[in-house]
């Protein structure tokens, strides 16, 4: 983005993608996972991308987090072009600007909970004392006090995902990406993760979450329906003027 562009737009969106395309080739067969996606996410929004498995929604999230490269299209994070970044630059971005949580947590298995959370803070340049303070604050917030010395294998799935959330948020990234964050959790763990995402969102955290679970999606302010590599609908939830009798209809019992 040029300086002239920057002065024209007061506040750039947190994330802007234009014309994203990604095609996978395996055994000479092409599979188009993402076929021309435009996306704009404002600061403070909580957006869910939902759709059937195989629709390409995880690929989209991987492109936006720099874990995979688009064939074409542009990505801007906080107004800055990032699709042109090299591997090293993306690694820095994922440390400071973007936090990511995955379905299977991806914690470092031979590090303690405390070290899993402090490591990205240290890598981003925090002093050991700052890293420890941030870790303590986040773990307390996420109800994980007393688990500092545990290894990931000693925790339940829900607890591991909370550690992953702490790790993703320890450097206060502008954008949190979540890829099926409750995909491997039971219903209690799911509710817990959802409650925490909503809480961070209420404090201003921008979140983009990919999920096939409508209950998860409905916690977001905006739900993008992804289908066959394309956005087929983009709906703001909780808007005014809509019919509210839906709940009673759904709950009506016979008798």
């Amino acid at each position: 983005m040029s300086d002239a562009d920057r002065s024209r737009a007061d506040v750039p969106p947190m994330l802007r993608a234009e014309g994203l395309v990604k095609t996978y080739r395996a055994d000479g067969v092409e599979a188009k996972a993402v076929r021309g996606v435009d996306l704009r996410i404002e600061r403070g929004e909580f957006v869910a991308v939902t759709g059937p498995s195989g629709a390409g929604k995880s690929t989209l999230l991987h492109l936006l987090g720099g874990l995979d490269r688009p064939d074409s299209g542009q990505i801007r994070l906080d107004g800055k072009r990032v699709d042109t970044c090299n591997e090293a630059r993306w690694a820095v971005l994922r440390r400071r600007g973007i936090g990511i949580v995955f379905q299977f947590f991806n914690l470092v298995s031979n590090l303690t909970v405390a070290d899993n959370v402090e490591l990205p803070a240290l890598l981003a340049g925090s002093t050991p004392r700052q890293a420890r303070a941030s870790r303590k604050e986040l773990l307390a917030e996420l109800g994980l006090e007393g688990k500092e010395g545990s290894t990931p294998a000693e925790l339940s799935g829900g607890e591991q995902q909370r550690v992953a959330l702490a790790r993703a948020l320890v450097n206060h990234p502008g954008l949190l990406l979540a890829d099926e964050p409750a995909g491997s959790l039971d219903s209690k763990g799911t509710r817990e993760v959802l409650r925490l995402l909503s809480r961070f969102h209420q404090r201003g955290q921008t979140i983009l979450m990919v999920t096939h679970d409508a209950r998860m999606a409905s916690a977001a302010d905006r739900v993008i329906s992804f289908f066959d590599g394309r956005v087929v609908d983009d709906a703001t939830l909780g808007g005014e003027g809509r019919r509210t009798s839906g709940v009673a209809d759904v709950l009506e019992l016979k008798g």
Partner: peptide
Amino acid sequence: INRQRRHYLNTMRDLSKL
């Protein structure tokens, strides 16, 4: 289909709040 999906998602949201 798109309109119906929006409606269901909004209902889902209301149920979560309830």
